[in-house]
């Protein structure tokens, strides 16, 4: 096996040729580590690494670096997310050194939801906050690469020890303007992204077309693309994502399948939920298989949002269990 960039478990699984599985763990609005510990123990074993989100939806939560360390201590490998929203390049690099010193080996570079997002208006958030966006996500990937491969800070000063991160970026293949998205993916890889996690895919045909373009650009041989799967939990959730989540479109058939599952429960609310959740897990498994069949795809990034308990069954049913021990 060629020498590792970071030696992270995720990197090893990708290098081994097995389809990689990442999951997502959203830290809570709490000073207690308990929820992170609990979620980490549910996800451990179901994935090769789990993303620890960085104040997702622009709401204050346990910082991604601290939550990543808590997860790591539980035996779950973290992918620490780092947004450009809240830190300038000085703070970002300081946090990267700190994260590396704590044993964190994967980092996902993202712009981050704008501070006005406030959990899509469900929470107060901090819409009046001043944002930073000193660098963008592509520049951030470049900073990580420069620190790792050249031992230099962005400004040029040397580091005594380089942080050895496996560098990740996000990709929204279905985002506007769609014909530019494969090129933006290429830029992310040119900047230094070792792996890519995509926005949730429901429209497999669209993803196939975008992947074919990515293949044309020679991207998949230079990075590991993990297709995003957001496990649907209800017809309402699918409709919401189709209508309101940028870059996500949900084919009618999937929404209809969920509605059918819901209707089969009659007036029984509990059953309505159970049947939709069962159908949602089935849909997730099908999507995983379809995504993994697309040329150039090296794994899946499965998000069972606030529903970590669903992960194990899904991974098993998709034939991705147990995870390789490398």
């Amino acid at each position: 096996m060629k020498s590792m960039k970071s030696g992270s478990n995720l990197e090893k699984v990708i290098a081994s040729g097995n389809p990689a599985v990442t999951a997502e763990l959203g830290p809570p609005m709490s000073a207690s580590p308990d929820e992170v510990v609990e979620k980490a123990n549910i996800l451990k074993g179901c994935c090769d690494a789990a993303n620890i989100t960085d104040c997702q939806t622009a709401v204050v939560r346990i910082s991604s670096i601290a939550a990543a360390k808590i997860a790591l201590d539980q035996g779950l490998e973290p992918v620490m997310q780092m947004t450009c929203r809240d830190r300038n390049r000085i703070a970002i690099q300081a946090d990267l050194l700190g994260a590396a010193a704590l044993g964190i080996k994967n980092c996902l570079c993202i712009a981050g939801d704008h501070q006005s997002f406030s959990a899509a208006g469900r929470l107060k958030g901090h819409a009046g906050a001043k944002n930073v966006y000193d660098v963008d996500s592509i520049q951030l990937a470049g900073i990580l690469k420069k620190m790792r491969d050249e031992g230099l800070q962005e400004g040029g000063d040397p580091l005594h020890e380089s942080p050895e991160f496996f560098i990740g970026s996000a990709w929204t293949p279905g985002g506007d303007p769609m014909d530019f998205r494969p090129y933006r993916l290429k830029k992310k890889v040119d900047a230094g992204s070792d792996f890519i996690q995509t926005q949730g895919i429901y429209d497999i045909e669209m993803f196939k077309r975008q992947m074919a373009k990515a293949v044309e650009l020679g991207v998949p041989e230079r990075t590991a693309i993990l297709g995003g799967i957001i496990v649907p939990r209800s017809a309402m959730m699918l409709k919401y994502m189709d209508k309101s989540v940028a870059g996500v479109s949900v084919p009618k058939e999937l929404i209809e399948r969920m509605l059918k599952a819901k209707d089969a429960a009659g007036d029984d609310k509990k059953k309505m939920r159970e049947l939709q959740e069962e159908e949602g897990k089935k849909i997730a498994v099908e999507l995983i298989k379809q995504v993994l069949d697309i040329p150039g795809v090296k794994g899946v990034h499965i998000q069972a949002i606030e529903w970590e308990s669903a992960m194990e069954g899904i991974v098993k049913d998709a034939g991705l269990y147990p995870r390789p021990q490398l």
Binding site: A111, H114, N131, G175, D176, P177, Q199, G247
Partner: peptide, 21 residues
Amino acid sequence: CSKTLMNGPCGGTDEGKCEVS
């Protein structure tokens, strides 16, 4: 650009509009 991005659109673009509004 609400995020002063320099390398292309973020994932928040929706039908040509910004995720902020």
